[in-house]
Design a protein around this nucleic acid. Structure first.
Length: 568
RNA sequence: CGGGAUGUGGCGCAGGUUGGUAGCGCACCUGCUUUGGGAGCAGGGGGUCGUGAGUUCAAAUCUCACCAUCCCGACCA
């Protein structure tokens, strides 16, 4: 490719609304342009990278036996109604009607669709199977952001495993775990697995792959000593025991003007935050529910969702709260409440002498024995872990790291198989539902994650494996001699299988160097009058900036070797 | 969905308070000079000032409504 013909509109300044480094650099480098919020047009450079990432994913999934499909991205509503997810997916799913008024959805994922195909499986002898496709997904995200990191239209490789039993699923899951780690290694995105909430996917076991980045949206709890790591939506920690003394009688007392945990700590006759019950009134799928955590703890709403199976969760409005409990926020509690469900955090088990609101404005109770005085309908882990708390495994201090979720693998079990009749005959003449797993990795998000992990003040430093071009031959002059020498090296590079670009633009040296660095080409071969006189070219590595003089006759071979070293 | 901000050539911005010919830098085109780290000079092209209404002799500028985009939060495989 000649750069003079390449459409790669580079920008000196990043658009004002780009904040994340990957967003700024991918726009500045001419890899992509925004069409509207959450939708990007891939330009030639961007599409090259995207395809290289996809190809690596493809190779690694093929390596564990995956077979490539391509399923539709527009689906009839019926199939989603069968699985129940037409309702449970809520607003994340784009829905539309065709001319006949039939309801359609744009695919957010493809469990249902693959299951319909899998219903043609009939014998255990056909298993295991791993099926995948790389297909556009649409998700009506409430807030697309950070360029390619959170979009509404994107390509995902999703694979699905089909096994005759749980042991088969476990093996398929482990093979995906290995394949994913290989993928992240090849695209040079540092990654680690964490325990995760399965959310709307269902199933019982899932691992998210994370890469640390300030541009991410997930918080991960990590233990520096034993290696424990979990999404904050799932993480637990050990709490020091608290001595409450002996249980005493329940006693109501006046607390004029006290509306917060902090105020009750200050109040004469009040209590420390860890001796208070924090009662949150939540609306779970339309049902007023009291959610209780310790006064100094924070509720994690994903944990609440996982514990209850609720889909729509929101704090109750003040008027809803007053109607339900007869008091305003600040004086609420679960004592004596029997007409609303109460869910209590497990950290409150066995606690006595606690203080909480009395459901009368300006009054609280002290001497609350949780199990004696509150009608708890469900105990659950609801508390969000904080940095510095003790690891539940080893006691070391936990840290919280901001991360980008770059992959997620799930053990689904038989839910979809049962719904869609995916069953196989067994050797002993039985029929069993197939045990499924599903495994997702976003192509564009990983492309962006690679930039987040590989850039400097001059631009992107693409890993050789996914760079839009592996090497650029930069011509300092456009005279016949330089052009001929450059063309010769370019041809040699191509014949060695190097993905090369010839910078034959009529531009100054500074512009060419700056652009090559901005778009992140790993190796640059510079041809100028100085070197040509000696019969030499310069070979510069993007990441280090180091330059070596190489004879014109050897330079293509040398580049090829360097690339081989880098991708080994 | 709540809070905040912003919409003026492809990108970055000024102008707006005080209504009166739409400007600057980069990029683009032409010419000359230059040529190893984002050149200089001269000339040139390109803008429904987010959209719609309103006020006014006159609106980028004032008023109202709407739309869009970004950030924080909520939400979210």
């Amino acid at each position: 490719m000649r750069w003079s013909q390449l459409f790669s509109p580079t920008l000196r300044d990043a658009p004002n609304d780009a904040v994340a480094p990957s967003h700024q650099l991918l726009v500045r480098g001419g890899f992509m342009r925004q069409l509207h919020a959450g939708h990007y047009s891939m330009l030639p450079l961007g599409w090259r990278v995207h395809q290289k990432v996809a190809q690596i994913v493809r190779e690694e999934i093929e390596a564990i036996g995956g077979q490539e499909f391509l399923l539709p991205t527009m689906h009839p509503s019926g199939i989603w109604k069968e699985s129940g997810r037409w309702d449970t997916m809520g607003e994340i799913m784009f829905r539309l009607e065709d001319r006949k008024g039939a309801e359609l959805a744009l695919g957010i994922t493809h469990e249902e669709i693959f299951a319909t195909v899998a219903s043609e499986l009939s014998s255990y002898k056909q298993l295991p199977q791993v099926w995948y496709h790389i297909q556009t997904k649409f998700r009506d995200e409430a807030r697309p952001k950070s360029g390619l990191l959170r979009v509404r239209e994107f390509h995902m490789k999703d694979s699905y495993s089909f096994d005759v039993d749980q042991a088969g699923l476990d093996a398929a899951f482990d093979r995906h775990d290995v394949a994913y780690r290989r993928i992240f290694e090849r695209i040079e995105v540092p990654a680690f697995g964490v325990e995760a909430s399965s959310g709307a996917m269902g199933g019982n076991d899932s691992v998210e792959f994370m890469t640390p980045s300030e541009a991410g949206e997930d918080d991960v709890v990590r233990c520096p000593d034993c290696g424990y790591s979990a999404n904050i939506e799932k993480a637990t920690s050990a709490l020091p025991a608290i001595d409450d003394g002996a249980a005493t009688a329940l006693e109501q007392f006046d607390t004029p003007g006290v509306r917060t945990i902090a105020a009750l700590e200050e109040f004469d006759g009040g209590a420390a935050a860890d001796h208070q019950l924090k009662t949150l009134v939540m609306m779970l799928d339309g049902t007023i529910t009291l959610v209780v955590v310790r006064g100094d703890h924070q509720l994690n709403t994903q944990k609440l969702a996982d514990a209850t199976g609720a889909i729509q969760i929101r704090p109750a409005e003040v008027d809803e709260t007053v109607a339900a409990l007869g008091a305003h926020p600040g004086s609420l509690g679960g004592v004596g409440v029997s007409d609303h469900p109460i869910i209590m955090d497990v950290a409150l088990e066995g606690r006595v002498n606690m203080t909480t609101g009395a459901n009368i404005d300006d009054k609280h109770y002290r001497g609350v024995s949780v199990e004696r005085d509150v009608k708890v309908g469900q105990w659950a882990d609801l508390r969000e872990v904080g940095a510095g708390e003790a690891c539940a495994n080893c006691g070391a201090e936990l840290t919280i790291v901001r991360c980008i979720e770059i992959g997620h693998i799930f053990k689904l079990g038989t839910k979809y198989a049962e719904t869609f009749g995916v069953t196989v005959s067994t050797p002993d003449d039985g029929v069993v539902p197939v045990v499924m797993g599903s495994y997702g990795i976003g192509i564009g998000r990983n492309m962006a994650a690679a930039v987040e992990a590989n850039h400097d003040e001059n631009g992107i430093i693409w890993p050789v494996s996914i760079a839009p071009f592996q090497a650029v031959v930069t011509l300092m002059r456009l005279d016949d001699e330089t052009l001929a020498a450059g063309q010769k090296i370019y041809d040699e590079l191509k014949s060695l299988g190097v993905d090369a670009l010839l910078d034959d633009r009529d531009a100054r040296a500074g512009v060419k160097f700056a652009d090559a660095e901005l778009i992140g080409i790993p190796f640059r071969v510079t041809l100028g009058p100085r070197g040509l006189k000696e019969g030499n070219a310069e070979l510069t590595e993007r990441r280090s900036g180091n330059t070596e003089e190489v004879a014109l006759t050897d330079v293509a071979q040398r580049v090829s070797e360097r690339i081989a070293d880098a991708t080994r």
